[in-house]
Amino acid sequence: MGDLLDKRLLFVMGKGGVGRSTIAAALGLAGARRGRRTIVVEVAGQHRLAGVFGSDHGAVLVEREIGENLFAITVDPEHATTEYLSLQVRPRAMGELLASTRMFQYFAAAAPGLSELVTIGKIWELAQLERRSRGASRYDLVIVDAPATGHGVAMIRTPKQFADIARVGPIAHQGRIIHRFVSDRRKTGVVAVAVPQEMPVNETLLLRDELADAGMGIDRVIANGCYPQRFTARDVEALREANADGHGPLARSAMRAALSEQVRASEQRPQLRRLRDAFGEAPARLPFVFAPELDRGALEALSRELESAL
């Protein structure tokens, strides 16, 4: 864990619905608790962070402080493009003007990969000790709630692809710098989130291969939503042998729910084993949260649990 939070940039990746946003937020809280100035980044179109952190301000397009040592931002490609141009093009106003022309907007929408490129460019910029943005302060740790597996990997690969295509010129140069940073495993880490079920685990293995192609790797796997092992084999036997007819519907339902829980808990074991075998260490386990919503208190608790599990 020490290693992970000491990095400068952390991507939280995984299949849709496995709890990436929650893990990103929990890691953010953990970083902040250690006194690291931490920012949690979500990529446009997600708008989940506000919900996770329990604020209702919607998307935050500018860096915003949401706790001690903790900040959040939503990186929006359009916004990031304007910012990029205003830094690249002098005078500054010219860049802003350019970005606002309809022609440029059509171009930006149609040029393949451009929005991925500016998004990862902005993420890289946030992780620099010397920030480019005027008056911007530095962060020790940037945690990215990445898009779901396929799109997430595509985003991370974009700088290298642009660098290869462009060969020379500013974009090639910047693409190479960004690629060097995200593929430097001392500076950049990847946390893969899975729930212990067949398909999310398959996708985690796929993610590992795709990242390897991009010269990257997974630093830690988190098995989220693990059911508690409440019942022993002997319990199950007792429940099965219990005389269901001798009880009312409520008690019968309760016993059935217990057996059902047992099935889920035992089905996750081979999946946890697959993860352990594939990565050479047991995944960090987080419990399934039996609560209607994860409030800030529950998130804080989960964050501490995560910190000790890592």
Binding site: Q88, M103, A166, R167, A172
Partner: peptide, 26 residues
Amino acid sequence: RGTGMVFGVLKRVTGIDLLEDLAVFF
């Protein structure tokens, strides 16, 4: 002028190779 400006600036920002590839693509 507007168009020339956009193209000129794009050239500066992206580098000529990339822009040419884009132009060929389109």
